[in-house]
Design a protein around this nucleic acid. Structure first.
Lengths: 378, 378
DNA sequence: CTGTTAGCGCCTTCAA
DNA sequence: TTGAAGGCGCTAACAG
């Protein structure tokens, strides 16, 4: 079952040279159909699987993709990786996980990145929330190493291909929903202001208020850190305001902070959503199971993962073809489109408002029909 | 920065042969200390990183470890992988993720496994909850391919190295805790009976009852499927019992089912923990943030991940040495211990009871302190 | 269309 | 203790 089978064996059994076997392996077009058929049959019979390391070495490229991710314990990363894994799993590529560990997002990962590149193990790199490392990745990209960023820090340099979420529109829709429900005093708990997302969501919040002619009350905007504790603290600060200035609704910049806000409300005997409506941002898996279930802005992480993997694969294949124009082999699932090549390649994914009980209205259905921007490829 | 640097370059710069550089790289003892020093310095200066694919090819082994995991979206898998990643990250090994996708745990993964092995990419395999695939992995192990199972399905065949959790004791302690709080009518929501864990936890529950001389009431034991919905359904069934038979406490076989039970209680106006105490099993990250925070049996997944990675690494290194007894090189973090070699190599990790509010007693302390879940939301 | 010939970068005998 | 030479399994020119 695990006998050591090489191309040489297949070649012998099929009565051809190793080179020919290699050709069919790599989907080269110039092989006699009958011969190809025979070789494929032998490979099938013998259960031959090529040595991916050897082929990478010889070909000067590998069929490994690297994923640089901050931490699997951030609630949405697994969702994202599920999307990535599904796409990659349908191709002959494999996925390598890098630096699953560091808690500290600020840490400069240039050392890891340069190590990855030098090791020449992977032929493309997917970086999730690279933070300060983005500049190194951009440098890689400018040296035409395939890189794809999933980012929330604003425009990465060097036209690096990049996928993000339309936070501003998402926040706008969430706030607008609350306004439509009749709320006029809507508080916002921001994420840390060092993250671009926090500003984007804040701007979306402002957009909706402005559209409705509601003046912005600075007392109703506080900065949290995405975690439940600060959500609780900020909510308490809101509840401590004099009655006429107190918010009737809270839009939290993350689901976790919304959890904290709900806890704070319950502790004071305020009922959600009757006394105060709460909306989050993220749609963590557990948010549907809260009591009450949390209305929130869903980030399409699974879809982002799929999209990211597809794009990266396209880049890798395209860069293969640039080095070896002869081979136009394509395999199932990877169709290198030339379109994705015109930089800048940027995708902004639309969020969707998930309406549950915590906002006090399951009646206004429908979320974001409008798509995020029109500068897409494909 | 990413110039193509090979052993040849280092050799030239250090004024030695490629062979010598290679010896230094592989920590061979028979190199002149001064020479070794010089070579190391050059490598450092140049930022040399060996090509892992080539060395795998030439050496007949690789420095890649495979991880076969069911789904990253199961709440505890990321925790586990964090442990694995930390250990592997501290070594020259890299981690490859396989089959992140399939939802269907029943699916036979022999195809994937055999593909992994034949591809010869990885030199060891870590399988998380392999289910029916365990027998293929055991076959691999018996052919002396390093394999490590993290399992909950009972004894795997062939003495395959294996890590699991002591579910019976965990369940026993949870139930005993409820008994000590004065409960006599304690219900249990089982996991699916097709899983061994469900039986183990049930037995632990029975152990505690028996120890306390409380007769088992079959009406207080129902089978769920680990998810919140069945937790809710089972709890409702309990609450529908005549008052004198109704439970005052519920021990759920998973946190998710406990969530459902709490929701069911609240829906009926029963207060947790005052009217009914609830204890879960798992300690999902979100369980600390529930209202009320959930008392639960923590499974030490992070630690299991670390332990698993360490053991697998030890096996891989040991099997290297069996094939190449000459090289006794060890690198930082991997110390092949001969002890781990006597089969059967099995580790049963202890659980710990995390006491929060949902059981109605934060006074009986000990076990681990409250943990806020160190994750972030973006 | 197919076989032959060189390596890819590294490891490992075998001599020296 | 070190160098030279051969080869890991596969790919990529080049002929034919």
């Amino acid at each position: 079952m695990a006998e050591k089978l090489t191309i040489r064996d297949i070649a012998r059994l099929a009565g051809v040279s190793k080179a020919t076997v290699s050709r069919v392996l790599n989907q080269k077009p110039d092989v006699d159909p009958a011969t190809r058929e025979r070789i494929l049959r032998v490979m099938e019979e013998q259960g031959f699987v090529p040595n991916i390391a050897a082929s990478g070495l010889a070909g000067g490229r590998s069929r490994l993709l690297g994923a640089l991710i901050p931490s699997l314990t951030w609630p949405l990363i697994p969702e994202l990786m599920r999307g990535v894994g599904e796409v990659v799993g349908a191709t002959p590529y494999e996925l390598i996980l890098y630096s699953i560990n560091d808690v500290n997002h600020e840490k400069d990962r240039s050392d890891i990145i340069s190590r990855i590149v030098r090791t020449r193990l992977v032929s493309g790199l997917l970086a999730v929330f690279p933070g300060p490392s983005a500049k190194y990745l951009a440098a890689l990209h400018s040296r035409s190493f395939p890189v794809l960023l999933i980012d929330d820090q604003g425009i990465p340099p060097e036209n690096t291909p990049w996928i993000s979420v339309d936070n501003r529109v998402g926040a706008y829709e969430a706030t607008r929903h609350l306004i439509r429900l009749g709320h006029r005093r809507i508080a916002h708990i921001q994420g840390p202001l060092k993250y671009q997302v926090s500003h984007d969501r804040y701007r979306g919040y402002c957009d909706a208020l402005e559209e409705a002619g509601i003046p912005l009350d600075p007392a109703l905007v506080l900065e949290g850190d995405f975690m439940p504790q600060t959500g609780r603290a900020c909510a308490n600060a809101f509840f401590d305001l004099p009655p006429e200035r107190r918010p009737t609704a809270i839009f939290a910049g993350s689901d976790y902070m919304a959890y904290g806000a709900i806890a704070a409300a319950e502790q004071r005997g305020l009922r959600v959503p009757d006394d105060v409506a709460v909306v989050g941002f993220d749609d963590n898996p557990s948010s549907a199971h809260m009591e009450p279930p949390l209305t929130t802005v869903r980030q399409p992480f699974y879809e982002m993962g799929r999209r990211a993997a597809e794009m990266l694969l396209a880049f890798v294949e395209a860069s293969r073809m640039m080095h070896h124009p002869s081979q136009n082999g394509q395999f199932a699932g990877v169709t290198p489109s030339t379109a994705v090549f015109d930089p800048p390649v940027r995708v902004k994914m639309p969020t969707s408002l998930i309406i549950r009980a915590s906002c006090g209205a399951s009646r206004h259905l429908h979320s974001s029909p409008e798509q995020g921007g029109g500068d897409r490829s494909r």
